[in-house]
């Protein structure tokens, strides 16, 4: 059989990965506990979000590298995951850039970031019955 011109194939790893899996598992359990515990202390604002997402990224990286074998299998798979993450960042990033810098008048009127005067007017109009509140169905009986 001639050598293929394709990407180099990696031979199956001969040794067992059980120890590694065990370590990753324990790390994941600990990190879950950590993020849970930190959330109880209610770190305010952006820092809390950053910590929670940071821990999630560490956990996700562990799963992708070791459970999903990106660590010991170089080649196009890594590229696939990385490029998909680039586009995840792109969609979320540029969409958030839009809503965070958009003219307040182009945002939903009862959003936190809508102009306070506009919001107050809406609430007053709703209270005076000149404007219907967000449409709701009557609560279904369970």
């Amino acid at each position: 059989m001639t050598a293929h011109a394709g990407d180099a194939a990696v031979p199956a790893p001969p040794h067992s990965h059980r120890g590694r899996y065990l370590a990753v598992w324990i790390a994941l359990l600990l990190l879950t506990g950590l993020t849970w515990g930190l959330s109880r202390s209610h770190v305010p604002g952006f820092a809390g979000v950053a910590i929670a997402l940071g821990i999630a990224i560490v956990k996700g990286t562990l799963v992708a590298l070791f459970f999903m074998h990106l660590w010991d299998r170089p080649g196009p798979s890594r590229l696939v995951l990385l490029s998909s993450l680039v586009f995840v960042a792109l969609l979320i990033g540029l969409t958030l850039l839009d809503v965070s810098t958009r003219s307040p008048l182009a945002l939903p009127p009862d959003a936190d970031t809508a102009p306070e005067a506009l919001r107050r007017t809406i609430l007053e109009e709703e209270a005076a019955g000149r404007r219907s509140p967000p449409e709701r169905l009557p609560r279904a009986t369970p």
Binding site: T32, T35, W36, S39, G48, L53, I55, A56, K59, G60
Partner: peptide, 10 residues
């Protein structure tokens, strides 16, 4: 792993 903090923690 990402749903958990997004929905429950922050």
């Amino acid at each position: 792993i990402f749903v958990f903090p997004l929905v429950y923690l922050i």
